[in-house]
Every structure is written in structure tokens, then in C-alpha cells.
Write a protein that binds this DNA or RNA. Structure first.
Lengths: 283, 283
DNA sequence: GAATTCATGGAATGAATATTTCAAATCGCG
DNA sequence: CGCGATTTGAAATATTCATTCCATGAATTC
């Protein structure tokens, strides 16, 4: 063993972050053997292909042997090609996961300060991604449909438990300010089913709920549907159990971070509805 | 061959585009068997995992058998799971496609009421501007200071009225989930001053309030300060009357649109605090 | 210019993976 | 309640894939 002490010991540090790897590749590109340099060039030019392809398919496109890919990965300290490929995949993967990984890394390496920074940055990014997703997934026509439905309602019932409660309560605040009659269902008192009992076809309801769905929210929504109350649902999947046959539903994908979702996109949608409804009533 | 003409010929139409596939999944979700629906829901919620994972790893996460994934793919006209997976990968591949998709989406989106569209766009933009402002104005060191203060507290009192109430209530939810003892002050019952009376120097409080400051929030905050309770303030101006001499305060500028503020930046800051505090306690 | 190290191509190997198959379970319908 | 059809779970199978190995070729050094 001791006779092998001067073998490859440098292996230890293989960059887990794509940008670190990129830097390593750039800095070493002149010392790299011909074929390995070829691989590096291809990987930099087509990182997406590296992320998804198989060793064989990439080898063909980069015009090298599959074994060269393995050697390349090992030259950078990875165990094999698959190991290196992960780095390329993480680059594309949902950012949240890469963030929580970064957090875990920070946890062991540095003090709490850096961790807070990463946490904060993660939430800031989360906001922006939520905004992007919101724009992509919510069709304006459907907002119009919901507004029409809500504008005709006598009273708007707001259903939202647990995580969704802040949204409902903000809606309640907004409707109040806008002069739209609304009732917040989900108060700490237990009279909610009775309150909801007054709702009828001439009213409307907005239910907000995300996985894991609070059982109460589900029950209330069903009750509302059975009473033929026009319904608007804000949830996180088209497969949500809250969605009934003729409700107007919205899918809102909130960036999930450390198990907590910022409600920014949901809030934005809710506010859009509130303001648009008030506006429609004025006309 | 002709003897097999009446077998499954419907295979022809398998969507090669992610969004088409998505639509197909949504429209067929009610006719799908239980496990296939389960796969559909998982795929919609975690498209990235589907893109990168293996049939086995996805099956575990979606809590089905690998074979079910194959069946699912075939049910939508694909040859097998790998064939379907390509669609999920292409979504992540070159961003250009996702950009053009987004443009196409915008096209169809603008079909509705122009005013609604403007409103919606305004709120979406608002989110992003809030995120930007948040990053700029909040120094990480101060977050650390607040976290330190809160991590030592026995009980964390949460003060937030009216517009800020959703933030406080979400904090209450988050702290509850994270196992941090907290009390939400601002319940519909009028016992708040008494509740706050229990707070002392060994506790801490988070007050959230924006202009126009709810008088109750102001009063509560003063009361808390007088009882020498360490205080963290989230507000919208360095001149806010809530800020006391030795509290840790944050200025959060929410984009204002049509007189309504989305609470996205405030939520993000609040969540950062909550998660960081829970983390600090673990250590 | 010979010897040694290093890089490379190509095939063999063994592990991991998608897919198929079949029996059991569940559901719908008479 | 019982029959057939559909759905589901679990294991068997066949494929694909990453990796290793070894012989050959190129480059470097003495």
C-alpha cells in the first residue's frame, strides 16, 4: 500500500456544482490529452446532451469512444461517467433541489451565516420562479370566466385551511376594502359548516387548497358543490380532489423550498381575481 | 399483418410536445384507472424527476410498480416508458423550445379580456419586482441577527393585523410545523392584550405592519417593547413607528398595484426567518 | 534512437434497466 | 351474488448501458 502512496491521490475533489466543473475544465483544457479535450469541448458546447444522453450516444456525437468518457470523468475525480453526468443533470433539475443540496453542503462546511444567505437567496429565487410558472400556466380566459362567476355572486365564501388560510384571509381583507361581500370560512371557531349552509346557487365560493389537502377544506368544498354554489378552485394540480365537474379551477405551482411554499403566486392570482371582480361589479 | 389490423391502432397519436401531453393527461384524468391517475398526478407535480429518473426510482416516488409506468406510457400511445420520458426530457433540453412555447402561450392567453390580462400581468410583474427589491434591501447580517434573537426565545409572539395578518398566520403555521412554540396575536376574539401580557424578556415577538399602520398593531408592538420582549419588526419604511431603539427591523418594499400589495416579499422574508430559526435551534 | 510512459480504440463483462408475462385482485354489470 | 373484464402487483426476461480490460499506437525522455 505504502508503495502506492504516490498514485492518484488528487482524485479527492470532484466538483459537485456545474459551474465549478466548468471552471475546472477551462483551466485544465491545455493540459488535457487530445480526446479528453475533445470531450471537454463537446460537454461545454452541449451540456444538455450530456445531461440526458447515454454514454454511447454522447460518445458518437463527440466522436470518441464510450470508454473515453469514463476516463474523462475519472480525470476530473469522478467515479465514472454516471457520476459526472449527475452534475450536468442537477444543472437542469428543479432549482429547489440543488438549493437544498447546497444548503446541506453549507451545513457541514461553513458557519450558520452562509446558510442563512443561501436560504434567503433560495426564497428570493423561489418568488421569481413562481411568477414565471404563474404566467405560463394560468390562461387569462379562465380568469375572466372566474371573474364573471364571482361578479354575479351575492356573497363570496372563502374556504382555506392551514397553509392556504393566509390567502383566504387576505382575500377577505381585499374584498372588504373593495366593498365586495364575502365570508371567511376557516375561523378558529367551529361554526364553519353552519356558515356554509347559507350558501346557495346565487352565491359563489373560492376554495384554496394544496397537497396535502386539509380534510376540512375538502369537506367544505364538497358541501359547497352539493349546494350548487358556483365554485372557483385554486390548487396545485389538475388532479386535485377539489376540482369538480363544473368549477373554474386554477393550477398554481409554488416553488417548494425546504418543504415550505411561498404563497406569492397564489396571492397574485387571488388579488387579480379580487380586483377584477370589484372592477366588473362597477360596470 | 392484416390479421392484426383490429388490434390497437390508436397508438398513432402520442404527443411529442410536453404541453400537449399535459393537456391529454388533464382531459383524460377522470377516465384513468386509479394507479395510472396516480402516475399522471405525480408526473404533473414532478416533471423534472420524470425527466431524469429511472423507471424504478420514479416508481418508488410515485408509489407504483415500474410496470405501471410502462402501462401508463402505453395508455397514452407511447411505445414504452423511455419513449414517454423523452418528452419530459425535451421540455428541459434547449430552452428555446420552452421560450417559443411560452410565446405561444402568451398568444392564446391574450384572447381574453384585455383589462384582466393587464391586471394579471401587472401582478406577475409585481412579484418579480418585489423579489428584486427584497434582495437589494435586506442585508443578510440582519437576518442572522434576527434569527439569533428568535432562536433563543421561549415563545415567539406574532403580531399582525389586517393586511399583515396573512403573513403572521402563515408564520404561525410554519412555526407549528417546525416545532417552534409561537402564539398568533390577532385572533378575531378580543383577548389579545391579555395574551401579550404573558410575554417577557425570555420570549420574542415578530411584528408585521405596513402603512397605514393598524392602530392595534402599533399598540401591541409598544406593549411588547415596554415588557422588554426582544422584537423583530417587518415594515415598509425605516421611519415606521413600530421600530424601537433596540429591535431588529426589516424594510420590505412590496410592489403596489391598483392599491393592493402582494405579500410575496414579506412572505419570503418571514419564511426565511422561520426556517432559519428552526435550523438554529437544532444546533 | 530505444525505452518507457501515456493515450487510445475496441471488445468483453457484469450490472442496471425497461419491458413482458402471468397470476391475483378489484371492479362493473347482470 | 357470481361472472367476465379490467386493473394491478411481482417476478422473469431481454435489452441496454457503463465500466473494465487489454492490445495497439503515439508521444516523451534519456
Amino acid at each position: 500500500m505504502s508503495s502506492e502512496r504516490d498514485e492518484i491521490q488528487v482524485v479527492s475533489a470532484a466538483p459537485r456544482d456545474f459551474w465549478q466543473l466548468r471552471e475546472a475544465m477551462v483551466s485544465r483544457k491545455d493540459q488535457l490529452p487530445k480526446r479528453l479535450a475533445q470531450v471537454a469541448a463537446y460537454a461545454m458546447a452541449n451540456p444538455d446532451d450530456v445531461a440526458f444522453g447515454t454514454a454511447a450516444s454522447i460518445a458518437v456525437k463527440a466522436e470518441v469512444q464510450p470508454s473515453t468518457l469514463v476516463r474523462f470523468a475519472q480525470a476530473f475525480g469522478y467515479q465514472g461517467f454516471s457520476d459526472l453526468q449527475e452534475v450536468f443533470q442537477d444543472r437542469l433539475r428543479d432549482r429547489t433541489s440543488s438549493y437544498s443540496e447546497r444548503l446541506r453542503a453549507l451545513d457541514t462546511h461553513t458557519g450558520g451565516n452562509a446558510k442563512t444567505a443561501a436560504l434567503f437567496a433560495g426564497f428570493c429565487d423561489g418568488i421569481e420562479r413562481s411568477a414565471e410558472a404563474l404566467r405560463e400556466r394560468v390562461p387569462v380566459e379562465r380568469i375572466d370566466a372566474a371573474v364573471m362567476l364571482l361578479a354575479q355572486a351575492e356573497t363570496i365564501y372563502l374556504v382555506g385551511q392551514r397553509r392556504s388560510y393566509p390567502v383566504s384571509s387576505y382575500l377577505s381583507y381585499a374584498f372588504g376594502k373593495l366593498g365586495v361581500k364575502s365570508v371567511l370560512v376557516g375561523s378558529p371557531q367551529g361554526t364553519d359548516p353552519e356558515t356554509l349552509g347559507f350558501a346557495g346557487p346565487r352565491d359563489a365560493a373560492i376554495a384554496v387548497s394544496f397537497t396535502p389537502y386539509a380534510s376540512a377544506a375538502l369537506a367544505y368544498t364538497r358541501q359547497v358543490a352539493e349546494q350548487n354554489v358556483p365554485l372557483v378552485v385554486i390548487t396545485d394540480s389538475p388532479f386535485s380532489p377539489l376540482i369538480t365537474k363544473d368549477c373554474v379551477w386554477f393550477e398554481v405551482v409554488e416553488a417548494d423550498f425546504e418543504g415550505f411554499r411561498l404563497l406569492s403566486a397564489t396571492m397574485a392570482l387571488a388579488m387579480t381575481l379580487a380586483v377584477a371582480v370589484a372592477d366588473a361589479r362597477r360596470a
